[in-house]
């Protein structure tokens, strides 16, 4: 289909418009990189000129050396893999379980009316406060960490997905009913497919939440993972390890979020092809 553009003859004005836009975008990109570079340069300079103490503030070069050391011993990948694995399992389970429970509540409006205030309270409660309890119940292991990650995302998933379910147009449900469709068909033919964007959106929210749960869990029980590296590093005053882990965590979270965003684009494109 045509999108209103004529590919052959682009007027001078249009050309200069394109040029301006491209120049502006380039400027933004470069400024972003320069800002990041400046931050690290300033940090390094400050520690070298003894404005700040590198023992407690670490330094980019110190972090780099720590990274090299950890990579050489092969242990960095293990820590990364553990954190990534726990987060993935946590947010996938959280979204799946949350969606399943939303289906249950949509199906049984009595149940959802009864549980509504409890859900509101549970949603407001910082789930990380439950972490110590979970550890006492489940034990000093990975299952505890994943459970904490799952808990951080499951309630908010139930609430967003259920809201999406309830926003499905009444007339679309009527459409299924006039063909004699039952409730299961209303669910599978209209309610679920209509809410694919809503569920993908829940995935997006849950990546971040699941990281919070995993790191808190690792703080408390783990022998592996970035959260462990952070607490352990701070206990033995290896601030290079601590700050390196925090930066890696930031990169990891951003990458996972981007992954979900591109997944979302692909799903929506396939739906509307």
């Amino acid at each position: 289909m045509s999108n209103g553009k004529t590919p052959k003859a682009i007027s001078k004005e249009q050309q200069s418009y394109f040029k301006n836009i491209r120049a502006y975008r380039r400027k933004i990109k470069w400024t972003r990189w320069i800002l990041l570079l400046l931050f690290f340069v300033l940090w390094q300079t400050a520690t070298q000129l003894k404005w700040i103490d590198s023992f407690i503030f670490s330094s980019p070069i110190g972090m780099w050396q720590a990274a090299v050391e950890l990579v050489k011993s092969g242990i960095l990948w293990q820590h990364l893999a553990v954190t990534i694995g726990e987060t993935m399992v946590g947010f996938l389970l959280g979204t799946a379980l949350g969606t399943a429970l939303a289906v249950l509540l949509w199906w049984n409006s009595f149940l959802s009316d009864v549980l509504e205030p409890y859900l509101v309270v549970l949603n407001a409660l910082p789930k990380t406060a439950l972490a110590p309890i979970i550890i006492v119940w489940i034990g000093n292991n990975v299952t505890s960490i994943i459970t904490v990650a799952l808990l951080t995302s499951v309630v908010v998933t139930i609430m967003t997905v259920l809201e999406g379910f309830c926003r499905v147009e009444e007339e679309k449900i009527k459409l299924i009913r006039i063909f004699g469709g039952n409730k299961a068909q209303i669910l599978t033919k209209v309610v679920l497919p209509d809410n694919v964007p809503c569920i993908v959106n829940a995935l997006k929210i849950n990546v971040g939440l699941s990281f919070v749960g995993v790191i808190v869990g690792e703080f408390l029980v783990a022998k592996m993972g970035l959260g462990y590296l952070i607490t352990y590093g701070s206990q033995i005053f290896k601030m290079d390890w601590v700050l390196l882990s925090v930066i890696l965590l930031a990169v990891l979270a951003a990458l996972m979020y981007q992954m979900i965003v591109s997944l979302e684009k692909r799903i929506l494109k396939r739906r509307n092809q």
Binding site: E169, E171, L175, I178, K189, P193, N272
Partner: peptide, 14 residues
């Protein structure tokens, strides 16, 4: 048998 046509087409976009 009944066939029912609604006000809007309500074609499912997916």
């Amino acid at each position: 048998n009944i066939g029912y046509m609604l006000q809007k087409d309500h074609l499912l976009e997916w």
